[in-house]
Every structure is written in C-alpha cells, then in structure tokens.
Write a protein that binds this DNA or RNA. Structure first.
Length: 910
DNA sequence: ATCCTCCCCTAC
DNA sequence: TAAGGTAGGGGAGGAT
C-alpha cells in the first residue's frame, strides 16, 4: 500500500505540541479533582458545546459546567442547549443554527450567570439574532431567488413531495455548491484560528483534539444508535405525558368511507419500516437520481473517476433497490460496489434530515396510538388493536392511510407488515417491500413461513446462519422435522427454543413499551493511532467526558466501569488496509466494580486510568477504545414502590427482625411484625454484609494514575479487579484493608480516629467537615451547630411522650459528645479535605443500596448521604407530613435507632 | 444452585 | 483516504 503516513517529523511535532497541551490539561485536571464538589445547581438542565476558541477557555467552561450541574458536550448535538462561541463567521453560524435547536451565545453569559448566581436572559448574549442577517449573507453567492428556493426546500418536511416536479431539478447542484462554499469557509476560518499549525484541516486520528467530535459528527453507526435510543425515549415520554386523546383518530373516523367493521381482530400488530431510509431521504432533494442505483456513503466522486474510487474502502450505509438488484448490500465497500455496479451514484449523508424525517414518522403514528415499540429511527412495531376498535377501520385501511400520510409528509416511502405477532408482522414487511404493505392472515401463516430463509429470522445473523447452513438447514421448513432439543444443542437453549417457534411463525413476546437503560457506553474503533502513553491518556479523558455526559443526561449512576480495547493482532500489519481502520484485532476488556454508584467524572476517569495501567497495552498497538458504564442504579419510575420511604423503614425493620430471630428472640418481636408489601419483599435481596471488610466505609476510587507497573498480560480475563484503592501513593499499602485511619495524610493523622469512630455517623460527618473547612471559626459556629441539632419541636410533638423523652436524652448525649470531642481534637489549618473524606461530605458516589439494612444506614460514615441519595431518586413526595414519618419510626424502628432516624428526617425536611 | 464476569452475537 | 457505534440477550465457566 502506498498509503501516506505522516512523516516522523510531523508526528514528532504533534507530539511536542500535545505534550505541552497535556501538561496543561493535567494541571487543570488536578485542580478539578480537588474541587470536585458540586458547587451549585445553577446550570442544571443546561448543556453547552464550545465551538472554537473562547474566553474563558473551553476547558474552563467545562469545569464551570461540571461544578454547577451543567452538562458539557464534546460535540454539538441536537439537544445541546447552547453553542458557546466568541467569533464565528456567518456561514458557520448559519450551519449551526439551521441544523439544530441550539442558540449560539457568547461565553460571557456563563460568566455573568455565575457572577449573579442565577440564570440570566440569554437573548442579550446571542451571537447573532435570527435569520435576516445570514440570509443576506447567502445572497453573496446565490441569487435571492435561489436562496429562497433552497430555504423552502429545507423546511419542506410538510410540503408534498411525491410529485417530483415540486422540487426544482437543479436544487442538488445548488446544495452542492453551497456545501462546498461552506466547507471552504470552514477551512479558512480554521486556518485563521489555528495559525500555529497545531492541527490540520481534518482531525485525522485520535491524537487531534477535535477528532472525537468530528468522528461522532460523521459516524453513521453512532447516529443510527443514538437516534434509535432517542426515539425509544421519545415514545416513553409521549406515553407518560399522554392525556388520553389521539387527535388523528377523529379525522380517521370522518374519512372512513366504508361501513366495514373490524371483526376478525386477531392480526393487529403492525411492523413499519422506511424503505432504504438514508437513500430515500437523500433523494428528496435529488429527484433526478430517482430510479437509479444510489448509495449513501462518505466516499466522494461517485462513478465519475473510477481510478480513485475503485479501491475505496468507504462503507455503504444504505443503497436503493435499484442498486440492490445489482448485488449491492448495506455495509459493502464502495470499491466493491462500483465493480458490481459501475453506474452507482453516491450521495453524502445528511443526519439532520434523517432525524427530521424520523420525527415526522413517529409523530404521525403517535397521532393515532401510542402502543408503539420503537426499534430504531426508521422502524417500529405498533399494536393497532386500540385504534381499530376506536375508529372501526379495518387493518389494511388504516395501514394504507398512515403510509400515505407518511409519504406525503416526508417524501419517503415506507412499507408495513401486519400479523398476529411481531414476528409475523416483521416477516410480512419483507414481502411488502418496497413501498407496499402486506397482511399475513392467520390461515396463511404456516405456509408463508415454510419458505422463509432461516437467516431472515430475527436473531439469526452471520454466525448462526453459517452454523445452521452447515447442518443443512436453510429454510424454516428444514427446521420443522428437527426436535427442540436438537436445535438447542446446536445453538443454545434460548435461541434454540426461539428458533423452534419462529420457524413456525410463533412468537410469544409482547410489544414492550417501557424502556429502561441498562448501560451507557462510548466507543471509538476508528482513527486510533497513538505513539505515546500521554496521547492515550488524553483520549481516555475525552472519552470519559463523553460517557460522563451521557450518563448525567439520563440522570442515572453506575457501579461498573469497563474499559474495552481493540489491540492489533500480532500478525496484523501495523498499517491497516482501510484508512485509519482497526484491522485484525484482539479484544481486551476489564471491568471494575465500584462499591458505590457514581456519576462523578473524577471517579470515572480515575477508574479508567487505573484499569488502563493494569491492562498495560502498548499505546502503539491500540486500534479501538471503549468505555462502558453498567449496573446502573434503578430508575425512578420503575421502582417507585421499592423506593418509597415507607419501604425504607419496613426494610430496616425487617432486617432487625431477622437479626433478632436469629438471636432466638423471635417470640419477643413476632407480634410486632408487620408484613410488608409482598412485592417489596420479593424484590428485596437478602443482605450480605459488604465484603469490603473494613469497618469504615471508604470511597472506592482508584488513585493510581499514569502508567502503573500493572502487568495484566494480554487478555485481561482475570477476574474483575476490585479497585479498593490505597491512597498512600508511596506504595506501601500492603493492607487491602482500607480503614479510615491508615488513609489519612499528614495533618489529618492528628485526628484521633478512635474517638471519631465512637461517635454517631452524623457527628463524624460534621466533624470532618469542620476539620476540613471551617474549624478555625470559633465557638460561635459551634453554638450554631448545636442549635441546628436541637430537636425540631414539630417532630417532638408528634412523638409519644415516653419516646420523646428518650429522644431528648439521646440528643443531649450527642451534643455532649460533640462538645467534648471538639475540645480534645487539635484544630488544624484550613486545608482541603483529603479525597477520602470528600465523598462523605458531598458524595456523588454514595451507596445507593438496592436493599436497605441497618448496616447500610447506620454505622457508616455515609449513612446519611446514603439515605439522602437514595431519596433523591425516589419520586415519592418526601413532603409527607412529619407525623407520618414519626409514626413509621415509632412502629418499626428500634428505640435506639430513633434518634438517628430523627436526624435523617430533620435532614430531609430542612 | 446461583451469581458474576467475560465474552460472543445480533440489530439498527 | 474515512468517520468500523451502541445496547441488549445469552452462554461458558469460575466463584460463592
């Protein structure tokens, strides 16, 4: 291959620059790590993307967002709230604003918001105000009239397009011209801003600072994946907020022509799917290409200069039916495709348009019913039973009605299949395509399936197909004489029984409407070329930023962090055949399970860096990197019951009861036993003492940074490492046991940890906080503290008298303990807390227990934060009256727990 | 037995 | 040049 590599000099230059940059980043990172407290919720719900150079720098802006609950996007997304920029040329602005909902504002807005500690009206900070100015700009190189046409076209989702005449024939030329112009200007701008030559026009590999964002902007798979997820969420949302009215149905009833009624209501599952989606969307503005073999790909040039494109290894994302007839397939390389079909026309991607069309598709269906299971951006299952019943239409009437509507609105054809279950509907769609519909009647099912290729069944991909074909099984009919056990033996229990049923048209899986994420990940297996460890670390950090922002976006936290590598296989050439591809690789993954759920950037980054050093793969050999966060905490809605405050108490009580029973005191308490909601208990896991052995809970943050001398060879298939990180970085932490004592660094070693350990959790917390921050202040604060710990009279009043007495007693004892303690402990200088303590004070990564127990709540420095965090995720109104709580408490909780629980309540009601 | 981790496979 | 992502189901085999 005469592929051009950057010369060694170029690499070296880049390395030098990158090193300097990294050093700076590191420095900032450390700052960042020390100040990882959330400072406020100022920017909650707001996300920014920084475009170009800004003041403050994008890094600073990121830190601000991190600290104030905002989200920092490493690349612009449709839902980015603000694009932050200082100086953008009009063209760029137009590009941004026409393609998204984001407003472009000056970074000053963020600075000023911070200053005033409130969200200011951004309109004064808009970099540009709508439309007018930039349209004028366009006239610089377009006639006014053309520009108008163009605009019309861009907004034309709702315009009828089935008639090709509607669109001017030369529109695509204009588009091309415009795009080129925009691109040219982009480069010019880029040069202006980057005169130092720190980066080329393109981000070539992952060492370029803007590689990640460019990659994500251009990756079809990324778009397919994220769009799909988005629409699943979209449907879930629509269902949640639905008021019971389906506006489309009225029109349907009115438009109903015949008096047909839907008597045979069995086959009412519809599977609907856009026909070669990307191509169809692209053809809307290129009517002259209709009827020709067309493919969507990054590769430019189409069929005109075969010299260059013959060998193109660019992949085809989607190709028209005309192209498929020539043997083209999605995913095929352009080079090969051109051999099969020299007349192939290639068109570029337009991700924003895909999204628009998909939205129209979903909105159209949603007018009639929300019994929708989203499969991807262009495909869904719909249960029509309800609509048909409500409107009296028969199935195919309805199907053709919506298909027409979709085609009219989007200018793109779709196909639909109808059957008694999802499998039948889906197989019916196959017959319907292209641009058609087909109902698979129950009497036809068995015959219809006989001739279906096994490889067409869902769940049967490349490998399974191969395996089955080798056994001589190709058609569904071939499977009929085979016993269930036999099939299972070949392909596994689960898939075996699925296939056994599928080949007969049986599918018992109902449509699923709720959609709960189980993991979040980000992965790049393209353009990964590192020469140095530092480049790898910088990139890992970017990936962490990315997962972190995705995690925060879905408002979840995770416990398990996986680093995934693709490593060049020993015998694979260093230069891949495909430009910047990954070539033949081994996969290496390693997972760390934290003790606590986290959504904290620092925790994620440290964990990842730590795994990185354990895997110890030479950066040069890396070809792909991914980070996955799994074991997400439970989602609010789905576990409302389990998360109720009542069940918290019940579980605590249950736990105590068990303990007492074990101690043989069952009869004493048996009468007190309340049988909790069976659903709750059935989901309660039996608690085991945390195997994290130490008496004190310590945050589970790996501290090792940089290249450790981890030696985990190759496959990384060791069991997952618990990264119970010793902090004392000078290495001599022999004990895996990590107790608070051994982990303190110098000034804090003076703290008498034994005394501290004696105190109730909440006091430890207060004291440690004082210690780290304000202990310098005099008695005054202490008095204030005391007052704060005084018992809420409202709460007291709600208690039965004898209990009230005990509570008061206990409270006095606590105060004394605190007072005494503060005398015995020397007051250190004001110093930032060591990182072990941080989470105790304001922990994003506190335990969010699946099960709650005494030991989870009490006896741990984090109990309070634990409960707090747990309650943060509950949708139960925590403003239930104090009385209710005290009643729970009195009924369920041991007396000596009451005081602590009281403090929980105070905390909640503060 | 049951759970957990590390895979592999599939789908869009 | 090219932009080979992302989430979920499930099985093998070790740990508990």
């Amino acid at each position: 291959m005469s592929r051009k590599k950057p010369t060694t000099d170029q690499w070296a230059d880049m390395g030098g620059y990158m090193n300097a940059k990294i050093a700076k980043l590191e420095e900032q990172y450390d700052d960042n790590a020390m100040n990882c407290f959330k400072k406020s919720n100022l920017f909650a719900g707001i996300s920014i993307f920084v475009n170009g150079l800004t003041d403050p720098s994008s890094d600073d802006l990121k830190r601000i967002m991190l600290a104030h609950s905002g989200v920092y996007h490493t690349y612009q997304r449709h839902n980015t709230t603000f694009v932050v920029a200082s100086n953008l040329p009009d063209v760029k602005i137009r590009q941004i604003s026409s393609k998204s909902n984001s407003k472009i504002i000056s970074p000053q807005w963020i600075v000023d918001c911070l200053k005033e500690e409130r969200i200011l009206d951004y309109s004064n900070y808009l970099l540009y105000t709508n439309c007018t100015s930039n349209q004028r700009k366009m006239t610089d190189f377009q006639s006014e009239e053309d520009a108008d046409k163009l605009d019309d076209n861009e907004d034309s989702v709702d315009v009828k397009l089935d008639d090709d005449q509607t669109v001017p024939v030369d529109i695509s030329k204009e588009l091309d011209f415009l795009n080129k112009r925009v691109q040219d200007l982009d480069y010019e701008e880029f040069d202006d801003n980057h005169e130092k030559g720190e980066s080329k026009h393109f981000a070539r590999s992952a060492v370029d600072s803007n590689f990640l964002s460019e990659f994500y902007n251009n990756s079809r798979l990324h778009h397919i994946s994220t769009l799909g997820a988005k629409f699943k969420e979209y449907i879930t949302e629509l269902r949640e907020n639905h008021d019971g009215d389906f506006p489309g149905r009225h029109a349907l009833i009115a438009a109903k022509s015949t008096e047909t009624s839907n008597c045979e209501g069995t086959a009412s599952i519809m599977h609907i799917d856009m026909d070669c989606f990307f191509v169809s969307v692209g053809l809307r503005s290129r009517p002259q290409l209709r009827g020709l073999p067309v493919a969507v790909t990054h590769s430019k040039g189409g069929s005109k200069s075969s010299a260059n494109t013959d060998k193109s290894l660019s992949e085809i994302a989607s190709c028209s039916y005309e192209a498929r007839k020539m043997g083209l397939k999605n995913g095929m390389f352009v080079g090969k495709a051109l051999q099969l079909c020299p007349d192939l026309k290639t068109i570029p991607y337009d991700f924003d348009q895909y999204k628009e069309v998909a939205t129209t598709l979903y909105d159209t269906i949603a007018k009639y019913t929300l019994d929708i299971e989203a499969v991807s951006c262009d495909e869904m299952y719909v249960d029509l039973k309800d609509v048909l019943q409500a409107t009296g239409l028969n199935v195919m009437e309805f199907v053709s009605f919506v298909r027409d509507e979709i085609k009219t609105k989007t200018g793109c054809p779709c196909s639909a299949g109808v059957g008694a279950n999802r499998l039948q509907a889906r197989m019916a769609t196959k017959k319907a395509k292209p641009d058609g519909q087909y109902e698979l009647k129950s009497c036809d099912v068995s015959e219809y399936f006989l001739d279906i290729d096994i490889s067409d069944l869902p769940g049967v991909g490349y490998h399974i197909t191969k395996k089955l074909n080798q056994l001589g099984w190709k058609k569904c009919a071939d499977l009929h004489p085979i016993s269930l056990e036999h099939i299972q033996r070949e392909v596994g229990t689960k898939l075996g029984s699925t296939l056994f049923q599928y080949c007969r048209g049986i599918d018992t899986k109902p449509l699923t409407y709720g959609h709960v994420r189980k993991s979040v990940s980000t992965e790049v297996n393209y353009g990964i070329r590192f020469t140095k460890q530092s480049e790898l670390e910088t990139f890992l950090k970017q990936l962490c930023t990315e997962v972190h922002s995705r995690l925060t976006e879905i408002k979840r936290r995770g416990k398990s962090i996986t680093l995934k590598y693709m490593v060049r296989a020993d015998d694979a050439p260093v230069e891949t055949a495909k430009f910047m591809g990954h070539g033949l690789c081994n996969h290496v993954t390693k997972t760390t399970t934290l003790n606590d759920f986290t959504d904290n950037f620092d925790v994620i980054l440290r964990t990842v860096l730590s795994i990185q050093s354990q895997l110890n793969v030479p950066p040069v050999d890396l070809r792909g990197i991914g980070i996955q966060i799994s074991k997400l905490d439970t989602q609010n809605e789905t576990v409302k019951d389990k998360n109720s405050i009542k069940s918290l108490f019940e579980k605590v009580a249950e736990q105590q009861l068990q303990k007492k029973e074990e101690e043989g005191e069952a009869d004493l308490v048996a009468t007190e036993r309340k049988s909790p909601d069976p659903e709750v208990t059935s989901n309660t896991r039996v608690l085991r003492p945390s195997n994290n052995n130490s008496k004190k809970h310590v945050e589970n943050i790996p501290k090792t940074r940089g290249r450790g001398r981890g030696r985990g060879r190759g496959r990384g298939r060791k069991s997952t490492s618990r990264v119970g990180r010793p902090r004392n970085s000078n290495g001599n932490t022999k004990t895996e046991e990590c107790s608070v004592e051994s982990d303190f660094e110098s000034p804090y070693e003076e703290l008498d940890m034994n005394v501290l350990a004696e105190l109730p959790g909440f006091l430890q917390e207060e004291i440690l906080r004082e210690h780290g921050g304000k202990m310098k202040k005099t008695k005054k604060t202490e008095k204030k503290k005391k007052v704060e710990h005084e018992i809420d009279s409202e709460f007291l009043a709600a208690l039965p008298p004898d209990i009230r007495k005990e509570v008061l007693q206990q409270q006095r004892a606590n105060s004394k303990a605190l007072e005494q303690y503060s005398k015995t402990v020397p007051v250190p200088d004001k110093k930032p807390l060591p990182s072990e303590i941080k989470p105790i004070v304001q922990p994003p990564e506190v335990t969010q227990p699946k099960s709650l127990s005494e030991s989870n709540i009490l006896g741990k420095p984090t109990w309070r934060a634990t409960i707090r965090s747990w309650l943060d995720s509950t949708t139960e109104p925590i403003n239930e009256d104090v009385e209710t709580f005290s009643n729970y408490a009195c009924e369920l909780i041991d007396l000596n727990m009451l005081n602590e629980l009281y403090l929980v309540l105070r905390y909640l009601f503060r």
